[in-house]
Amino acid sequence: MKVRVRLFAGLRERAGRDELELELPDGARVADALARVEHLAPGVALVLAVNREYASPDVVLAPGDELAVVPPVSGGAVLDGPLSLDAVAARVQDARAGAVVTFSGTTRDVAFLDYEAYAEMAAQRIEQIVAEAIARHGLCAAAADHRVGRVALGEASVVVAASAPHRPEAFAGAREIIDRIKAEAPIWKKEEGAWVAGTVPEVTGADAGADAGADAGAAPGVLDVRLEGRLEHGTQVVVVWGTAEAAARVGWLGGPFHQLRCEEPLAVRRNDRIEVRRPGDDELLAEGVVLDPQARQHGPTNDSLVRLSRLARGEDLPAPADAVRERDRPVAPPPLDAAALALERRYASAGAGALPDAELTTDERAALFALREAGRVVRLRRGRHVHVDFAPA
């Protein structure tokens, strides 16, 4: 069968066109289509959207499906023109609301940024994110807009508003909306002529957060774990707990922390020991401990890594109602692992001569994220970081 696949951002530029036509056998799966386009972005994790939903590799394709290849995203309405924070705040006014929280993400440090989107899917995804945040946090209302095209210095690229009877829920709802838009909406950012590396969208058999009323956003079968060994992001594995097991996909969060997105829930509890094995030959890939047996899907943000570090140390976390107050307190970044400490020594040895990011390995790029979050390196200019000891005044 013949299928047309839409391309965006850097993939579109490399291919020199907006879409490709692929000849695939009947019964072909998402993985087969991705294998035919991976040459456009060697070493970059790609996800296929089928009919405007992120699809797992084993989904079977059918003639007439709307396909789009989604590179890592760097991003309600998707608008080609200036955004208004007042307008989005007005959309969430409600007589029940005692708090209205707004957020505006603006261009900084550079003269402008260019944004591109898979507009139809991005609008649908933002609408879904907003609806799930309203249900999860008991909001009165919420709204979000994202801009495409050129956004000049100081102008807003994304605006979010959330209203609730009390401020903790309003803060939590607004925070979830912007974090998920950046992680999930197919929107890409170009800075000074180069596409900015973003987040690989998470893919499960169903959308993240589909059960909006379940356990404050927990998704059945999603485990936050600490493993004795690092697994590559996106690896297909089998999670074994006693005599029970479940197929899963790995999300690497940083250092020893991983998220395992199981196809079927496992009845594990916090601090239970698990094994992670390779499908087919049953090779042991890693062992570890469960930190959160009912986790929400999330990425490697500083907040999430701090939270997992605390769980790994055996600390109790604040109740959901105290979560916003907890965020207002200064928090230490997670401790640096051996890879981050080794990279810090490289930066210190380089002195004022900035180390080009292009020289870093994949593992070192992950360590650079940890160093930036810990405040041990600063960006001197695009593509180059310098140790804090040599940062310009």
Rank of each mutant, 00 (worst) to 15 (best):
S157F: 02
S74I: 06
R12K: 13
H166R: 12
D86R: 15
V73H: 11
T199Q: 01
V70D: 09
A117W: 09
V250A: 08
L7G: 00
L253D: 02
Q93L: 03
T199H: 03
L11T: 06
F103H: 07
V59N: 05
G98L: 12
W241H: 14
P165E: 12
L260G: 06
A95D: 13
V160D: 03
L368F: 09
K182S: 05
D322Y: 02
D272W: 11
P320I: 11
L48W: 07
A90C: 08
A99T: 05
G254V: 07
G221R: 07
S157C: 03
L291M: 11
A123Y: 00
A350P: 12
P293C: 05
A358V: 13
L7R: 02
H385R: 03
A247W: 02
V151K: 12
A15M: 13
H385V: 00
P318I: 01
V37G: 09
A49S: 00
D18G: 11
N271Q: 15
A62W: 01
G154W: 01
R36S: 12
A162E: 10
R296Y: 05
S163Y: 01
A95V: 11
L343Q: 10
L34P: 12
A247V: 06
T243S: 00
Q259I: 05
D94P: 12
V110L: 13
V203I: 07
G229M: 06
L113G: 08
A370N: 10
E176N: 04
G10F: 05
V222E: 10
T362L: 13
E275I: 06
G198I: 03
D389S: 13
P72T: 02
E364L: 08
E245A: 03
D292G: 07
H258P: 02
A319F: 13
D303M: 14
E169L: 08
G280R: 14
V3C: 11
D337L: 03
A162K: 10
G221D: 02
D328I: 06
A144L: 13
Q294W: 05
S56W: 10
E19N: 05
Y115S: 07
F8Y: 07
G229N: 09
D109N: 11
E263H: 15
A194V: 15
V388G: 00
R125V: 08
A295T: 07
A393M: 11
D363L: 15
P333H: 02
R167Q: 11
R167K: 07
I126F: 01
F390Q: 03
D114H: 14
A354W: 15
G213V: 02
A391C: 09
C140F: 09
G229Y: 08
F8K: 04
D114E: 15
A391M: 08
V30G: 02
D94R: 12
A152D: 09
L317Y: 14
A393C: 09
D65T: 10
L7E: 01
P72E: 00
A332C: 10
P392I: 06
H298Q: 04
L227P: 00
A212D: 09
D18W: 04
G138H: 11
R379C: 04
A366S: 11
V378R: 04
D65V: 10
G98D: 05
R150Q: 05
D357L: 08
A319Q: 12
V3Y: 03
F171E: 14
V5C: 02
A348Q: 14
A366M: 03
T102S: 02
Y347V: 04
V324K: 00
A185Q: 10
